[in-house]
Nucleic acid binder design. Structure first.
Lengths: 204, 204
DNA sequence: TGAAATCTTGCAGATCCTGAAATTTCACCT
DNA sequence: AGGTGAAATTTCAGGATCTGCAAGATTTCA
């Protein structure tokens, strides 16, 4: 006679794991926002969540990874979004639609993302990590792009370039969104960036 | 009666510094190429150059920075290259010319760059660092792009996007170049990537 | 030559991160 | 209920990274 285990067909165990992970991410973000990256140790973060610091490393390979967190879309997630677009749609347009879908996910976690962006702004040394976390993602998306475009990866450079450009467009949209306090509709900023790309980046 | 101090009007002191830095970079690259990133400690690198490990940290803030080294173009260097292009040239074209100039610099240090690319390929965790080192550079170039385009940074997103796309184009060209063993002419690959960008990344 | 600036070095120490073993928690089955 | 095995957490030990600090060596310059 247990209370209905709402949370999406997950046992107590997995639910706790997600909880712990989320708590660690949140603690890391708020603490670093207050004291700066160097002013926060892994032990501080772990203590705030009341787990051992060793446990922290069971969840994240490095301190900074808790700040990037699972915020960066998982590779497979993005790939699915891309593959959901009909094959007749041109590559760049498909990447735009994928990015829009991702943008909605970000808007859903508005507060968390604004905090994250603020932390990144205040600790520029973190910015690389954000891109870092995108590396694996970029590889997966790039492969999907190559298939869609019907070319082999590593020959024409087209899949690599299109993917990298799309990621850059999304990143720029995110930065504008964060800089504007999350006021604009992110999807519009994404469209904006992709329009410029599709037009060949002519002088404004 | 000293041998002509060739090296560009530098005293013995500064010459030694440059030597030490170059030696550390070279030792780091070759050692990591042999044993992998985790298989090499800072002490190993320092010993190979016969300095103390403390000295290593006087030159580089972190182990990985010795691998990126000064290889990544200095920000001001790139900005100068960009500003050397007449103002009437469109932004994207100016970025292409800047990249071509940089490409020549890379070709001049062919062996070092091929080794670097190989190390990056074998240690993907380093890739972020490379981008990292580009962050500051990107900011400087972006500012110059904004002035050239006659827009304020942080409003239209154009300077940010154009710069990010150009960097991506250069990066993709570099990867293709490295993957092909440094055989193609890098400048041609750069032109290739920029052509695709300027055309709006149409399906190939 | 002698003072000033700079570089190197050893040392102490905080923090990061990992492996292994002990302990606890949880899911599942009878 | 109670027992069992898998998974998560913790404790512990230890190597590696990186930072101040102060002493010693080297270079520069007057």
């Amino acid at each position: 006679m247990t209370i209905v285990d709402s949370a999406d067909e997950l046992g107590r165990r997995d639910r706790k794991k997600l909880e712990t992970r989320a708590a660690l991410e949140h603690a890391a973000l708020t603490l670093v926002a207050e004291r700066g990256l160097a002013g926060v140790t892994v032990e501080d973060i772990a203590e705030a969540v009341d787990v051992s610091s060793r446990t922290f490393f069971n969840y994240f390979p490095a301190k900074e990874d808790a700040l990037v967190g699972s915020g960066s879309a998982s590779a497979t997630d993005l790939r699915e979004k891309l593959e959901a677009v009909p094959a007749r749609v041109p590559v760049l347009e498909a990447l735009r639609l994928m990015s829009r879908a991702e943008a909605e996910r970000v808007q859903e976690q508005r507060e968390q993302w604004l905090l994250r962006l603020k932390v990144f702004e205040q600790n520029p040394s973190l910015f690389p990590r954000l891109v870092a976390s995108g590396t694996e993602t970029e590889r997966v998306v790039m492969t999907a792009v190559a298939r869609r475009a019907g070319v082999e990866p590593g020959t024409s450079g087209y899949p690599e370039l299109a993917t990298a450009a799309a990621m850059a467009a999304f990143r720029v949209a995110m930065m504008r969104w964060g800089a504007a306090g999350g006021r604009p509709v992110l999807a519009n900023l994404v469209d904006d960036a992709f329009s410029q790309l599709a037009a060949g980046l002519p002088n404004p």
